[in-house]
Amino acid sequence: MNEAEARLSRIAAIIQEASEEKRLCPLSELAGRLNDNSQGFADTKALLAESAPEEIKVMRGKADDYYFMEALMTEAYAIHLFRLAERNLLRLIAETTRDESRIYPRPTLLAGFLQQPFLISQKDLNNAVDKMLGSRDYSDIKLVSASNGDKFLYSEKHLNPNHAQALAEWAAVGEKENP
């Protein structure tokens, strides 16, 4: 095993360990664990870009690059972690909402962001939603309440208001009355 191979296998082990722990492995962490200097940092990045095995996936953020093992973590889950790592709450909430309005489709239960893996505090969540609803960047994101008080967000790009309202009411109330 040559030096690059040995290095790569060490890198893969660190990424695998992170994925097993249900977290992404940032490049900065890799560099730290490998005691890279600035040249080493660049080398690691290049090495991964050139010869990383197929099962190692990367997500490139503003602050860092993030690696995970696809066999241990789905891309869908990694995206949640990526958005969390990028520390942009508004974007996290909006993109999650847009995805769900588009894919399933369904409005997104606000309280879900208090749970794993998001674990956003109630206060931060309230602030983020207040900001988002007044922001031009997120003008497609709307709030809808069910009759039991549960709050949902949806993207108007993918769901119309009546549709979102009906789906929210069903998820919060109807479903429980009709098990």
Binding site: S19, M73, T74, A76, Y77, R106, G112, Q116, E175
Partner: peptide
């Protein structure tokens, strides 16, 4: 019912509620 590392999809309406914690 919740985002899980093994799952591509999730839904709060799901009865697959078992999870860590």
């Amino acid at each position: 019912s919740h985002p899980a590392p093994w799952a591509e999809y999730y839904s709060p309406s799901s009865r697959w509620t078992g999870k860590p914690g």
